Amino acid sequence: MAQKPFLEKFYSYQPEGEKKKILLALRSYTLSVDTAQRRMMITFSLDKIVDKAVLYEIEKDLCEIYQPHDCYIVPNYPSHLFSQQYLPHLIFELKRRTAVANGFFANSTAFYDENGGIFTVRLNNPLEQLPKDAGCEDILREIIQTEFNLQVRVQIQASGTFDAEKYFREHNTNTIRVALPPEKPAPVIRSALSEETAPAVINEDAPHIVIAGKMEFNISAPELIYGKS
Rank of each mutant, 00 (worst) to 15 (best):
residue 109 T to E: 08
residue 142 E to H: 11
residue 138 D to P: 01
residue 88 P to E: 00
residue 111 F to S: 14
residue 100 V to Y: 06
residue 154 V to P: 05
residue 169 R to F: 14
residue 102 N to F: 12
residue 154 V to G: 01
residue 116 G to V: 02
residue 159 S to E: 07
residue 120 T to Y: 08
residue 156 I to L: 07
residue 141 R to K: 15
residue 145 Q to C: 09
residue 167 Y to D: 10
residue 149 N to D: 14
residue 147 E to K: 08
residue 127 L to S: 07
residue 102 N to M: 06
residue 153 R to C: 03
residue 149 N to C: 11
residue 112 Y to C: 06
residue 92 F to A: 13
residue 125 N to W: 05
residue 167 Y to Q: 08
residue 99 A to F: 13
residue 153 R to K: 12
residue 138 D to L: 10
residue 116 G to P: 11
residue 135 G to F: 07
residue 161 T to H: 10
residue 163 D to H: 12
residue 111 F to A: 13
residue 105 F to S: 03
residue 170 E to D: 15
residue 132 K to Q: 05
residue 117 G to Q: 13
residue 113 D to G: 03
residue 104 F to E: 01
residue 155 Q to Y: 08
residue 158 A to M: 07
residue 158 A to Y: 12
residue 97 R to F: 03
residue 116 G to Q: 10
residue 118 I to E: 13
residue 160 G to C: 02
residue 141 R to W: 07
residue 151 Q to Y: 09
residue 164 A to E: 06
residue 121 V to G: 09
residue 127 L to D: 10
residue 147 E to A: 03
residue 90 L to S: 08
residue 96 R to M: 11
residue 156 I to Y: 01
residue 117 G to K: 15
residue 111 F to M: 10
residue 120 T to S: 12
residue 117 G to F: 13
residue 97 R to H: 10
residue 104 F to Q: 02
residue 122 R to N: 10
residue 133 D to H: 13
residue 105 F to A: 01
residue 142 E to Q: 15
residue 135 G to D: 03
residue 111 F to C: 08
residue 130 L to M: 14
residue 104 F to N: 04
residue 92 F to R: 13
residue 161 T to A: 11
residue 129 Q to I: 05
residue 119 F to M: 07
residue 169 R to M: 08
residue 88 P to K: 02
residue 115 N to Q: 14
residue 135 G to S: 02
residue 112 Y to A: 07
residue 171 H to E: 11
residue 135 G to E: 01
